[in-house]
Simulated scan of single mutants.
Amino acid sequence: MSEAEAGQRAGVAGRESGVAAVERTRAVAVFALQMGSVVLCGSLEVIGDARWAGVWPMPALLALLVLTGLAISAPAGIRRRLPSRWLFAAHYASVAVICVAAPRLAHDLVVVWWPGSALPYVLLTAVMTGVSYRSWQAVAAWVGVLGGAFTYGSVMTGDEWWAVLPHVAGMVANAGVAWYVTRILTRNAGDLDRARAEEVLRTAQLSEERERARTARLLHDRILQTLEALVRDGWIADDGVRARVAEESRWLRAYLRGDDGDPEGDVLAVLETVVRQAVGTGLHVEFNAGRLRGSPDRERVPPEIADALAGALREALTNVAKHAGVRHAVVWAESRAGVLTLSVLDHGRGFDPARRPPGLGIARSIVDRATAVGGTATVDSAAGEGTHVTVRVPLPSPV
């Protein structure tokens, strides 16, 4: 695994840790609110001398309320994890049902204690909706249900509906503030996690760049210098071995410059591949592509043009090896004013263009390839004067 990949994994792990921390905070808040609600409900019932014990089915409804509350509190308090949204829905629905059923089932008892004992519990439940749901639509829906149920219970006990509006407004405000604060905490945690992940990735990339620079210095100062000395100073007598070492040294120098891209996606890499293949056959090729290497046009050469140039270059170098009578060629490539130019020059025996010998493949493999991509190709040669092949292809206009 590279250091950059390690940094990315560390960033993802950091983000997961931050999200988990926010979820734990929400779970603790839900646990505190729920336990507070259960204690409040229980204490009011004890103070009221178990007044609901004989009003059926109020004991069953209260038992359902306590059970759903405990089911929410258990994972939130022990495992620091929010339970299912359906469990929250069941609990909130039981609160609303009790607010509607209590005035009908035990109207006289409700008149005594409503809304003093019901309001705190409903308020805490409204706050819990803001903490437990991420969607404001869900929070608004449940606050509407709770507010409507509480208003109905108040009206059934003799209160005017408009007198309940301040209490409902308090539910809306408390739930909204709880939802907004939770959302801000979640967003800030995500921003911090992303910043930490980016910093870890930058550190890993810097370390990788330093390691590559160190490796490049070692390769350049030791191995590359040795390979080029073997070729330059004539220490290798065998022409094939010397050509192979020269090819590898040129590849290594290109790699150290950073020109190790995908041959299928970069015209310069395509041409260098053809040159290396020719060198592998024993041909000495001097490749000059400085004006193409730094040109912005290099990134917008379509694959079909790169393939055509590669085919033309391969055919031209093959002709040098087979027919020129020399083992040296000069390849020059540049891009200027939106035109890509490739030339191959040798100082071999040449030929008379008017009496072109068969088998050179110039018309089919060079001229036709250039014409197929909207370019032109010229071949200048004379007997005993060498051969100069030039291919020019205009590039598509940038979008």
Results as ranks from 00 to 15, higher is better:
D307H: 05
V275E: 06
V285T: 08
V274P: 09
Y255F: 02
R300N: 07
I236H: 08
A269M: 03
G311F: 04
V279P: 14
A278P: 14
A278K: 02
L219M: 00
S207G: 11
L283P: 14
T281P: 00
A204K: 02
L268H: 15
T203V: 07
T215C: 12
H220C: 05
I223Y: 13
L292N: 12
V279T: 12
V270D: 11
L218M: 08
E286P: 01
D259F: 13
T215M: 03
A204R: 02
V267G: 13
A316Q: 03
L313S: 05
G265T: 06
R232Y: 00
L271C: 15
W251G: 04
R293G: 03
R300M: 05
L219D: 13
V301K: 04
A306R: 10
Q225C: 10
E299V: 09
R253L: 00
A312Y: 10
G265W: 11
E211G: 14
W235N: 01
G282W: 11
Y255N: 09
A312K: 08
R314K: 11
A278L: 02
H220Q: 12
L218W: 15
E286H: 11
D266Y: 10
E199I: 01
R293I: 09
R222M: 00
R276S: 06
A197M: 06
E304K: 12
E248C: 09
A246K: 09
P303K: 07
R222W: 07
D266P: 08
A289C: 11
E198Y: 01
L283M: 12
R244H: 08
L219F: 14
W251T: 02
N288M: 00
I236C: 09
Y255M: 05
P303L: 09
R293E: 09
L268R: 15
L219P: 10
A213K: 09
V275K: 00
L224C: 00
G234R: 15
R242D: 13
A243G: 08
R293T: 04
T226M: 07
R314G: 09
R276E: 08
R257Y: 06
H220E: 15
V267C: 03
R276N: 03
E286Q: 06
G240V: 04
R253W: 11
R217S: 08
A269C: 13
P296F: 02
G258N: 07
L292Y: 15
I305D: 03
R314P: 07
A254S: 01
V270Q: 02
E228V: 04
D262Y: 10
Q205R: 03
G261Q: 07
R222H: 12
L252S: 03
R202C: 01
V270F: 14
T273A: 11
R291H: 04
R232N: 06
T226C: 01
R257M: 02
V231P: 02
D221P: 13
D260S: 08
E211F: 13
R210V: 04
V275H: 14
E209H: 02
V301L: 10
Q205H: 13
V275S: 11
L227R: 01
F287W: 14
E208D: 09
V200R: 07
V301I: 05
L256E: 05
N319D: 15
G294A: 00
R257D: 07
